[in-house]
Design a binder for these strands. Structure first.
Lengths: 191, 191
DNA sequence: TCACTGCGTTCTATAAACAGAACGAAAGAT
DNA sequence: ATCTTTCGTTCTGTTTATAGAACGCAGTGA
């Protein structure tokens, strides 16, 4: 299916879904309704400005109108059991990748994190801009940017920029937590 | 900055970043090079087909050419302390929103989840397609789609489709975990 | 019945996006 | 040095996307 037909179909589907008439949308978007009629029929090759006006009126991101099919849906139904080595008592800081999902040019990773009492670990800045989100389960963790860390207790949560050096340190007792890391994929972010 | 200028700047920046000449890109995209020259200068309002051809040649998703500026970066430095009411012992199932971040038309939510021993909760299907990702901290949790739930112990992880009815049930002991929910925004603003 | 309204399509004239030629500038090659 | 090539811009004619009018159709009310 050629692109103009895809866009036309998306336009019509979105409009109908919103319960708007063709005339109404054309009026709001300041387009001739003949124009919109032919666009929806896939008989025209809209300009950027036209697409933008329509996306605005329909309240969808412009990119959505261009999409042939939805992102291949993230597969569901995955179960990951705790690996035995997670129990290894020797490691000072243990960050275990549990799951990674990629979609829409973004990657999301979920980790189990364990820090043994008395240990301190400084993670160097990550190349792509990374957001780290950490929920502490048990123990007291000092974490965040190395320059300005926070002290978190059980149930506390922090979000910080992994793009700078950052620290994980357990003071008096072992710490368990869940770490979510997110970043925009390198290749997709080419400007 | 008007849209055509944004797109023009993106086109030029991407082309230069790829180390390609204007003529070369025009040739590969089967465009007149005058056309491309004026597009890059922001003096034209390209058609969909033209944009598509250029995006293909430049190897970027079409939507990327339309982006005005990078997503407003997710603010970092947030700390959320456990609210006292999280300690309320009475609730059967307690799902507490810790953080919500929105970007790129997607929303990510992080919850603390607590299920009291012996309780069972069925969450109805969510309207937009939601991915639920749950990491169990302590206890044994039966969770997942109501039709086919899984039994998870401490450290176990599950990803499932929140778009169908799904269950959270603790059998013999209290369960603590971290829940990540993700979905594509229904009504994201244009662009 | 007969206006009257709003609908979506088709038609027509205008504006502008396009292809390609012409141009001057800069860099290599012989 | 003078061809030669490639560059990016500007110009010109053709194609086509658009605005708006004209059209037929369906529903509504007097």
């Amino acid at each position: 299916m050629e692109l103009v037909k895809v866009v036309g179909a998306n336009l019509r589907a979105t409009r109908v879904h919103r319960g708007l008439s063709l005339s109404e949308v054309a009026r709001r978007a300041e387009l001739g309704k003949g124009t919109l009629s032919e666009l929806e029929a896939g008989q025209r090759n809209p300009t950027l400005e036209t697409l933008y006006a329509l996306a605005t009126v329909l309240g969808v991101p412009l990119g959505r109108l261009l999409i042939t099919e939805a992102d291949p849906p993230v597969e569901t139904g995955l179960v990951v059991r705790r690996a035995d080595e997670a129990e290894l008592p020797g490691r000072a800081v243990d960050v275990q990748l549990v799951d990674r999902t990629i979609g829409g040019g973004r990657t999301l990773e979920i980790y189990r994190i364990h820090v043994r009492a008395g240990n301190r670990y400084v993670s160097p800045a990550h190349r792509p801009r990374v957001i780290e989100q950490l929920l502490v389960h048990s123990g007291t963790l000092v974490t965040g940017p190395e320059s300005d860390p926070e002290t978190l207790g059980p149930g506390d949560y922090i979000r910080f920029d992994g793009g700078a050096d950052h620290v994980y340190a357990a003071t008096d007792e072992d710490v368990a937590g869940t770490l979510v890391m997110r970043y925009v994929d390198e290749e997709a972010s080419a400007l």
